[in-house]
Amino acid sequence: MGELETYALIDFIPFEAEAYFRLFARQNLSIWPSQLLTLPLGLLALWLAWRGRARPLGILLGLCWIWVGISFHLRLYAELSWAATYVGWAFIVAGLLLMALALPIGARTARTSGLGTKFLGGIGLGLSGLALYPLMPLVTQLSWQEAQVFGVAPDATTLVTLGCLLMTGRPTWPLAILPLAWCCASGATWLALGWMPGLLLPVGGLIFIALALWPSFERPAPARSVSELEPSARRGETCFLDRTLTRPDTAGARHEPES
């Protein structure tokens, strides 16, 4: 370890909490009242995830990530930290990935989990991102201007995205890597700045990992002909969030029980 042992987490954060909170206020003020659209957009994302609408879901989430990368990280956060430039580009890449993996597929993702653990966990994460972050000023010392909103602030956007990925049953890990990386980076920042409500995101990330790895004991599907499978599976296409679902023996599973 050597020299690293002499550093504390705060030594890697080149700004004070006040300046960081102000980024959210400046972001909100600059785009007001478009935040009013983000709640319905977030609900739409959850609905699309529930319905397995991969293409519109990927486009919606991808655009949100690209927007947050440009308008928050590159435009504002980069003023305080050179690392934010790289984070901004990572958000743009994450957005492109969400869109790229969705666009060529265009298939419905099977609603594999029904009301199972993962589905409910995904709903919980998604609603937390949509509702808890904007309402934090009620229970913390934040001002309403500093509220974090889905599609505008990175943490809320990340949590909703993880929720959508989880709702589909078996999240595709390449799509989850960058959101999970932001969970770590953001959690470390909030921890260093001493704002404990900010740990909601890394906790959400841990819940996502735990539920994503949660074993699914799928009931063996009865043997069916290819004609009985979903259109995407018949075409041999892979699904947006769960490539394994295209296998003939599971493609039609809707409500497999989970332990």
């Binding site: 954060i13 080149p14 700004f15 004070e16 300046a19 102000r22 400046r26 305080l80």
Partner: peptide, 13 residues
Amino acid sequence: TWQTFNVGSDQPL
């Protein structure tokens, strides 16, 4: 000025 003066273009700060 470490941390304390790093406020970007935020005019009130």
